[in-house]
């Protein structure tokens, strides 16, 4: 009974964790390259959710197609925000960038609310389920999981195999050195920022495949906080670290519930949240480079 439930939850945790990981890669990429924490992260996820909803409900287009569309939308948003604000703030103190990214999030939320209203929406994409006995997995969740892994692999290849990718990598390692070597550092910043936003918006699509309801302009807040924990698990500045951080986080969140449920007089669900923030603090203290780093 106990192991059945734990097992079921862990399977769900892996599937969800992959999506969480993908949803954090953009955050880590932007921090890794620009040293900017995107506090408006969740709002960009929300944009992705609305892209999916709009394409599916109004035009009947499958959420799978929505992934590249959302990615392009995100790249565009990223470029706009980079050239209007972020570019001028790269050397500014944290205070400025934190507040700027937060304001971007609020701006997006209010714009989406103006266009779509504050209704809680959802869509119903029926593609079947698999019953594993100890738990049930809808195919949509599996597609989301597979999509996340695919995108992570593509990003990895992009970094390794393309010229633009290696330019970004060299900027991460040493921006001054890169400048000396003739790499267009400003361009690398712009590219990374819009790529990061693109990934985040695309992850919004995958997240709605996982949870296709409750879509509304203010849905992002919870995801921002989760993304922080996951990013820290993965070392904050590494997109792949974030991906594996997501897996670990999914496992912890789902697995620990079953354990906490045995403590009398508590609310186990809230405690799983508590645990995730404890982990955040512990990692920041003992190994701020993340649990997966070689050091």
């Amino acid at each position: 009974m106990f192991f059945e439930q734990l097992g079921g939850n862990l399977i769900q945790g892996v599937v969800l964790g992959a999506v969480y990981g993908m949803a954090t890669m953009g955050l880590s990429l932007i921090f890794g390259v620009l040293k900017v924490v995107n506090v408006g992260h969740g709002a960009f996820i929300m944009v992705g959710a609305f892209v999916t909803l709009f394409l599916f409900s109004s035009l009947g287009i499958s959420p799978i197609i929505a992934v590249p569309v959302a990615f392009m939308v995100g790249m565009g948003l990223g470029l706009i925000f980079y050239y209007t604000t972020i570019r001028k703030l790269i050397k500014a103190p944290e205070l400025a960038t934190l507040l700027a990214t937060f304001s971007m999030g609020v701006l997006l939320e209010e714009l989406v609310k103006l266009v779509f209203g504050s209704e809680f929406r959802g869509y119903n994409w029926e593609v079947g389920k698999i019953d594993l006995g100890i738990t049930v997995l809808p195919m949509a969740k599996l597609y989301a999981c597979a999509g996340s892994i695919l995108i992570a692999v593509l990003l990895f290849l992009w970094f390794k195999k393309t010229r633009a990718g290696s330019a970004v990598r060299s900027v991460v390692e040493d921006s001054e050195g890169a400048r000396v070597c003739g790499i267009n550092v400003g361009g690398a910043y712009a590219l990374s920022f819009s790529l990061g936003i693109g990934l985040t918006v695309a992850s919004g699509v995958l997240l709605t495949m996982f949870i296709p309801v409750g879509i509304n302009p203010y849905m992002g807040g919870g995801y921002t906080l989760k993304a922080f924990v996951i990013a820290v698990l993965g070392g904050l500045s590494s997109p792949y670290g974030a991906f594996f951080g997501g897996l670990v986080f999914g496992l912890i969140e789902n697995g620990s519930y079953t354990l906490f449920a045995y403590i009398p007089g508590v609310e186990p669900f809230a405690l799983t949240r508590f645990l995730s923030f404890v982990i955040l603090l512990v990692i920041l203290l003992i190994r701020p480079t993340g649990i997966l780093s070689a050091k």
Binding site: V232, A270, L284, P288
Partner: peptide, 24 residues
């Protein structure tokens, strides 16, 4: 911690504390 790490850690304290109060 410094900079962004400090900012994130303090968010963690705030949220974690709230969930501790609710959960326990």
């Amino acid at each position: 911690l410094r900079g962004a790490y400090f900012a994130i850690a303090t968010i963690g304290v705030n949220e974690g504390f709230r969930f501790l109060i609710e959960g326990a």
